[in-house]
């Protein structure tokens, strides 16, 4: 039986980097995204429409749907180290509709809980034609400032979003970039325009 009548399709993308710049990563990571293509529930409504009833009804179910598959694809919550989210809104909708589905606690809190994180979830959103790629940012699920885990995954569904659809995405990674070597807040020297006077002059 159809459990989600508003859902047209789900697309999983997963990549495992075996070598980068000719060398195997010290910590090999897998990145994945799960995209749900759904009908825009606010189609034909105006900018004064109260979005909250549909948000509380739809966003939690979307959060469960996409994180279940993400956990399955990456081998469980313990393996996931970084996360991100995104919405692609078809041309007949507002970007606010995408935001409504991913930026409220009805989605974000649940994705954070299901993926075992504590950080704010970084995001991308766009109003696009079907088949346009969107780069989704990820960062560490509990320590957002962990520089080694700043990374992205590219999401593209060839035939979505149609004008009347929204694509809702959750993405995650099991580790850092392949060869992270740009330090961290703990190792950075103090940098201001004054310390760089020689460089900037």
């Amino acid at each position: 039986m159809q459990d989600h009548p508003w859902l047209r399709k789900l697309v999983l993308y997963r990549e495992a980097v075996l070598t980068e710049a000719g060398l195997a990563p010290a910590i090999p990571a897998e990145r994945a995204s799960v995209a749900a293509v759904i009908s825009n529930p606010w189609l034909g409504t105006g900018p004064r429409e109260d979005l909250s009833p549909a948000v509380s009804e739809l966003a939690p179910r979307l959060a469960k749907l996409v994180t279940d598959r993400l956990l399955q694809a990456l081998g469980g919550v313990e393996r996931i180290e970084a996360f991100g989210k995104a919405a692609l809104v078809g041309s007949a909708g507002e970007i606010e509709h995408g935001g409504a589905l991913i930026h409220t606690p009805y989605f974000g809190n649940l994705v954070r809980e299901f993926l075992g994180g504590e950080s704010i979830i970084c995001f991308a959103d766009a109003r696009t034609d079907a088949g346009q790629p969107l780069v989704v940012p990820l960062w560490h699920k509990s320590h957002a400032a962990t520089r080694s885990h700043y990374q992205t995954v590219d999401v593209r569904i060839p035939d979505a979003p149609r004008a009347d659809e929204i694509v809702v995405v959750a993405a995650a990674s099991t580790g850092p970039r392949p060869h992270p070597r740009i330090g961290d807040r703990t190792t950075d020297p103090v940098i201001t325009s004054q310390t760089l006077e020689g460089v900037l002059s």
């Binding site: 047209r8 697309v11 993308y13």
Partner: peptide
């Protein structure tokens, strides 16, 4: 053979032409 990455894509279609697809394709 040097493999740089392995990519997996899975599509699960739940509806097409406005009608349910069950089980999902």
């Amino acid at each position: 053979m040097n493999i740089r990455k392995i990519v997996t894509v899975v599509e699960e279609i739940r509806s097409e032409g406005g009608r349910e697809v069950w089980p999902p394709a």
